[in-house]
């Protein structure tokens, strides 16, 4: 399902669908982010009320985990692996190239909203390093050329 505009009714339905789940907060936040793309203040408020938690508790969880976004990401999200196995195969150069070519740092989105660049510590592809993940798809043996191709292919989609 593609990302949708915030809807309190739809969000409430998602939260209530987790009513029988023990320790439901993470599954709820994942489900809301999948539907709405990010978790804004309205999401925090609604989840706190529905799960009978304080807003501080929910905010604390949202900001603890790097997966949860409080602002909408770019249309394409690329995560570059910074783990040691990737470093041994040139990921430090790839990190520099990614930031330089996109003109943004890790955790940032290009001004036109096309690409968000994230860092990640290990994608589990350590024998085919360096690795990146682009919109959830794992790619191995990535050099600067392949990185550029992945970005332009994503823009063309």
């Amino acid at each position: 399902m593609s990302v949708q505009e915030w809807s309190a009714d739809a969000a409430t339905e998602i939260v209530r669908a987790h009513s029988g789940v023990r320790g439901a907060l993470l599954p709820v936040l994942h489900a809301l982010q999948e539907r709405f793309g990010h978790l804004g203040p309205e999401a925090t408020r609604l989840v706190a009320k529905e799960l009978n938690l304080s807003r501080a508790d929910v905010h604390g969880v949202v900001t603890f985990y790097s997966d949860f976004r409080t602002a909408p990401p770019g249309r394409t999200v690329i995560a570059v692996c910074r783990g040691e196995a990737c470093q041994s195969c040139g990921s430090r150069e790839l990190e520099r190239h990614a930031q330089h070519s996109l003109g943004i740092g890790f955790g940032e989105t290009t001004a036109d909203g096309s690409v968000t660049l994230d860092q990640v510590f290990c994608l589990g592809n350590c024998a085919l390093s360096p690795a990146v993940q682009i919109d959830g798809r794992l790619v191995g043996r990535v050099d600067a050329d392949l990185f550029d191709r992945l970005v332009s292919d994503a823009a063309a989609r």
Partner: peptide, 25 residues
């Protein structure tokens, strides 16, 4: 099946338990 949210520390068993309970890890 439960899914983590990008926190290395949740591989530590007690942090994982807190995360499973819906808390910061």
């Amino acid at each position: 099946v439960r899914v983590g949210a990008g926190a290395y520390i949740c591989g530590e068993e007690t942090a994982m338990l807190d995360s499973l309970e819906g808390k910061r890890g």
